[in-house]
Simulated assay, not measured.
Amino acid sequence: MTLHRIKMPLIIISLLVGLVLSITLAVTMGSVDIKPATVWKIALSQVPGFSGWIPVDWSKGEQTIIWDIRFPRVLLGAIVGAGLSVVGVAIQSLVRNSLADPYILGVSSGASVGATLVILFGAFSIFGQFALSLGAFAGALLSILLIFTLSRIGGQNSTVRLLMSGIAISAILSAITSLIIFSAPNEHGIRSVLFWMSGSLAGGKWEYLTIPTIIVLICLFVLMAQYRSLNAMLMGEESAGTLGVNTTQFRKLLLMITALLTGVIVAISGAIGFVGLMMPHIVRVMVGSDHRRVLPVSALLGAIFLIWADTIARLVFAPEELPIGIITALCGGPFFIWLMLGNSYSFGGSGR
Rank of each mutant, 00 (worst) to 15 (best):
H281P: 02
E207Q: 14
S22Y: 11
L15M: 12
V216T: 04
S22W: 01
M1T: 12
L162H: 02
L194C: 04
R228F: 12
G204W: 00
T116Q: 05
V39H: 10
S51M: 03
A240L: 02
S269V: 01
P323Y: 11
I13C: 14
L341T: 14
I23G: 04
T159D: 02
D33H: 01
G302I: 09
P212S: 15
L145T: 09
E187R: 08
V32G: 05
L99A: 04
G325Q: 05
G83F: 13
F336C: 00
F127R: 08
A123G: 12
T64Y: 14
R191M: 11
T38N: 11
A100Y: 04
A225C: 12
T242K: 13
L254K: 07
T262A: 05
L134K: 03
L253F: 01
G139W: 02
T149P: 06
F71D: 04
A318H: 08
T24C: 09
V56L: 12
S200M: 06
W58E: 10
G241W: 13
L146Y: 10
V86A: 15
S192I: 04
G348A: 11
S198Y: 07
S165Y: 03
A37Y: 09
T177C: 10
L134E: 04
S51V: 06
I104T: 02
I126R: 01
P185G: 14
G348I: 09
E238A: 14
W206Y: 11
P9Y: 15
K7C: 10
L162W: 08
I215G: 04
I304Q: 02
L220E: 01
L253Y: 06
I312E: 06
P319L: 14
V87W: 10
T311V: 10
M279I: 15
S51N: 06
W53D: 07
T262C: 07
V107S: 05
S289D: 13
